[in-house]
């Protein structure tokens, strides 16, 4: 499979994601934020973590409006898989591909630790290891999932919650750690599967994530 890995100015997890893609035996298509791409050239796109555009304006806001994300929208509309990790989650929410928004952690601190998440609904493409509880690292200051009551009810009713934290680490509403779109081809989460690929990394629950 040809997997596009997007780099914005300020992205810092792209090379980890490249290693993850290669470890799963797929081919990496590096994508730069200024580039549009042909949707036929990419089978899946991953929006990695980091601090795209320095988190200016709002985290993910400027990246969501960049040229490469226009192509990602097209890719998603064709039903192809799009995965967002951490800042990638924030970006996909800002594009409108995913519901809700990520705001500052309720305790006001940057959270950097191992966490446990529980699978709620499966997507069409991701997290196919069969594990329903995953131990993955998080590293974010703005990872509190938020939506107003009506939106949150819709997310729950439509079964769009992908993962919940088993222990709420940032004040996320309904413990939400990851969500998906209605078509189940676009999904994102705050924890980092690419940082938990092998035992020597401290855990391998991120393996078979793509």
């Amino acid at each position: 499979m040809k997997i596009g890995v997007i780099t914005f100015p300020g992205t810092n997890c792209d090379q980890d994601v490249v290693k993850m893609v290669q470890a799963h035996g797929h081919t990496v298509i590096p994508l730069w934020h200024k580039d549009r791409f042909e949707t036929s050239a990419v089978d899946m796109a991953i929006v990695p973590g980091g601090f795209s555009y320095g988190d200016y304006l709002r985290c993910g806001a400027l990246a969501a409006r960049s040229p490469v994300m226009h192509s990602v929208r097209e890719l998603a509309s064709k039903g192809k898989p799009v995965l967002g990790i951490c800042n990638g989650f924030q970006i996909l929410c800002e594009t409108g591909l995913l519901p809700g928004v990520l705001v500052r952690n309720d305790h006001g601190q940057f959270t950097d630790k191992w966490t446990e998440i529980e699978l709620v609904q499966t997507t069409r493409f991701f997290a196919q290891s069969g594990k329903t509880r995953l131990r993955l690292p998080v590293a974010h200051g703005e990872g509190r999932f938020y939506a107003d009551k009506a939106e949150l009810d819709k997310i729950e009713d439509q079964g769009l919650v992908w993962f919940r934290y088993t222990e709420n680490i940032n004040g996320s509403l309904n413990n939400i750690a990851g969500v998906m779109n209605k078509q189940k081809n676009v999904a994102a989460l705050m924890p980092h599967p690419e940082r938990a690929m092998f035992e020597w990394m401290g855990g391998n629950d991120g393996f078979k994530f793509i």
Binding site: L57, R58, A61, R65, E94, G100, V101, V103, Y146, A147, D148, E151
Partner: peptide, 8 residues
């Protein structure tokens, strides 16, 4: 369209 996110 850009400067604000009406959700927040």
């Amino acid at each position: 369209q850009t400067l604000i996110n009406p959700l927040i």
